[in-house]
Structure formats: structure tokens, C-alpha cells
Amino acid sequence: MITILKLIMNIENLLSLAALKEFIDGNQPVAFTVLGSKSKKYQFIQKTLIKLTYLTLPRSDKGIVKR
């Protein structure tokens, strides 16, 4: 039997790379999707990358963000 669970996750409280790493390390692997149009998805990704200053991160920290 396949069980489908719909979960709404708020990641607004993940304000730093350290908080993101703790979240990733403390959870089982998760697959999620951003609801909405393609442009809304890109806006979400852009907002998250800016919040985490992705472009200025060293390579190892960028890997954490990608996970």
C-alpha cells in the first residue's frame, strides 16, 4: 500500500546556513516541491539563495544548500 502525505513546510525560520545544516542533518531524506507556477518556483529559489548569500559561500557550503 502506498501512502501519500501532503505536508506544508515553512522554511522561513531557516535564516542561516547553520540552521539549514541542522535541519538537513536531523531529518530523513525528503523530497518536496514548490506549489505554484514556474515563475513562483523561481522566485522562491531566488529568495532562498539570496537569504543564504549563496554566491559568496565556499564550495563546501554551496553543497549544503543544494542538498
Rank of each mutant, 00 (worst) to 15 (best):
T48E: 10
Y54W: 10
T3D: 12
L35F: 02
L55V: 02
L17E: 01
K21L: 08
I8Y: 09
D61Y: 06
K6R: 13
L49F: 06
I8L: 15
S16L: 03
K51R: 15
I24E: 02
G26W: 10
I24G: 08
T56H: 03
K41D: 02
T48I: 14
F23L: 09
A18F: 11
E22N: 06
P58F: 01
A31N: 08
N27C: 14
P58N: 04
T48F: 14
K6W: 00
K47T: 09
I45Q: 10
L17T: 04
F44N: 06
Y54A: 01
I4W: 00
G26K: 12
Y54C: 00
A18S: 15
M9V: 15
K38E: 08
K38W: 02
I24N: 07
I8H: 14
T53H: 13
E22C: 06
A31E: 06
K47E: 10
N27L: 14
P58H: 04
K38P: 06
K62N: 00
Y54E: 03
V30F: 06
K51C: 11
I8Q: 15
R59S: 11
A19D: 14
K40L: 00
L17I: 15
I45F: 08
K38S: 13
I11P: 00
F32T: 09
I8T: 11
S39Q: 04
G63R: 14
I50Y: 05
L14T: 08
D25A: 13
G36H: 02
T33S: 04
V34L: 09
L14W: 02
G26V: 10
M9C: 09
K38H: 06
T56K: 09
K6I: 05
D25M: 12
S16K: 05
F44S: 07
D61S: 04
F23H: 07
I8M: 08
I64H: 07
L15M: 13
Q46W: 04
I8P: 00
F44T: 03
G36K: 01
L5I: 06
T56Q: 03
Q28K: 12
T3I: 14
E22G: 09
K40T: 03
I4N: 03
L52G: 11
G36Q: 05
L52H: 07
D25H: 01
S60V: 14
G26T: 07
I24R: 12
M9S: 11
Y54T: 05
S37K: 04
L14D: 07
N10Q: 12
Q46V: 09
Y42S: 11
L55F: 00
L17N: 05
L14V: 04
I45S: 11
T56W: 03
K62F: 09
L14H: 01
L35D: 06
L20V: 10
A18E: 15
N13S: 13
G26L: 12
L5T: 05
L15T: 14
E12D: 10
D25E: 15
S39D: 01
M9G: 03
T53K: 13
Y54D: 00
V65Y: 00
A19Q: 13
I45L: 14
L5H: 09
E22A: 12
L49M: 12
Y54V: 05
